[in-house]
Design a protein around this nucleic acid. Structure first.
Lengths: 198, 198
DNA sequence: CGCATAGTTGACTACGCTCAACCCTGGTGG
DNA sequence: CCACCAGGGTTGAGCGTAGTCAACTATGCG
């Protein structure tokens, strides 16, 4: 189910939903703000992140069109992280109470929600694994294995390395060196941005 | 809702549930095993973890009595991590299909499940934050702030430091030094295991 | 009183970050 | 067509932080 396609949703929710437009860099909500709404991304992307006291930025994940944003706050009263528009973005906002009611009244809707949250939990657990790996080289390998489609064993890195590096929580230099090392070790083969797992 | 209290569950699930006993260290399931059941812990603890190729152990979380174990596999076909009994443990096993049916048929049950999964997602996001902080000192501070009840600003560390250290993904020595440093910096006060945030 | 375990401290090492220089590619304009 | 420039990527040197190993201290228990 695509939560941002209002006319696919149960009618009572349709009438409660409102659209909201964000320009690139605009903040949808901040940590510790009172949470009265749950959002779905219709177009664009929303990045969830958190700022530590010392200014380090912790990347959570990016919410894509059709996905829900900050599912957890249905059962909490304050947002736990900061949501910021990655590009110009359109979101649909649902009041929490209406959304909760619909979860109880409509089993299909509820199941779609559960699938989505479960998927998110799964991805977040993968993120935990990634961030927990100390060694940069191993972390990169883990990442490559994760983004490589199972059958073909080959990926092309589309994003600039700098971006991948921040996603992996390391400097671009460390990423570069890690790729070298993996090639030396014979764990991967590489032509430019095209990586083959061995 | 306590998922391990069978007689509190909807009757159709009661008849599908089976008990299983694990001794300390026994494995409930392994990564990549076909997932046909979902479990709830009745007594004891189940630790979820993952072994990397190079043998590093990544701690996910510990499942306490009343909680579900590996909720995500309802919508996946293979377990994504390894579950191991922390102590002698009793679990309740539900066939996935029965559990899924019940989620569709019983809104209260479904809501309890959603609350549980959402909570787990929330905690896992907190873990991501924790593991993403590079500096040991800052990581410890973040952890202390997280486990300290908001009003009183004081915690007693019950678990042995070694255990806390692994939970934080650092050595016990590093934890010890970090606590010292935080005290020097004036970020915390400390008498033995009793920590006060300043 | 001795032993075992948990926690602390010290010395050494290794890994990754930072800063800086360098290389390579693609695009632009003379 | 080639010189120039800009940006992404690579490589090098120095530094800081955390891991490891080992010694030492403190606490609790038989």
């Amino acid at each position: 189910m695509d939560f941002s396609e209002i006319n696919q949703l149960p009618p009572p929710l349709q009438s409660a939903a409102t659209y909201q437009f964000l320009t690139k860099g605009q903040i949808l909500f901040n940590r510790n703000e009172q949470a009265e709404r749950i959002y779905a991304v219709k177009s664009g992307q929303i990045r969830l992140l958190h700022h530590t006291q010392t200014g380090q930025v912790i990347q959570h994940y990016v919410v894509q069109p059709g996905e829900l944003c900050a599912e957890v706050i249905l059962f909490l009263d304050r947002y736990t992280c900061c949501a910021i528009a990655e590009t110009d973005t359109e979101v649909v906002a649902f009041p929490k109470s209406d959304f909760l009611n619909m979860l109880q009244q409509n089993p299909d809707f509820a199941l779609a929600f559960m699938r989505q949250v479960s998927y998110r939990l799964h991805m977040t657990k993968m993120t935990v694994e990634l961030r927990s790996i100390r060694s940069a080289t191993e972390r990169v390998l883990h990442y490559l294995q994760f983004i490589t489609p199972p059958e073909q064993g080959t990926v092309t890195l589309e994003k600039p390395f700098k971006e991948i590096a921040t996603e992996l929580g390391m400097s671009s230099e460390a990423l570069s060196r890690a790729l070298n090392q993996l090639e030396e070790q014979g764990a991967i083969a590489r032509q430019k941005r095209r990586i083959t797992l061995l």
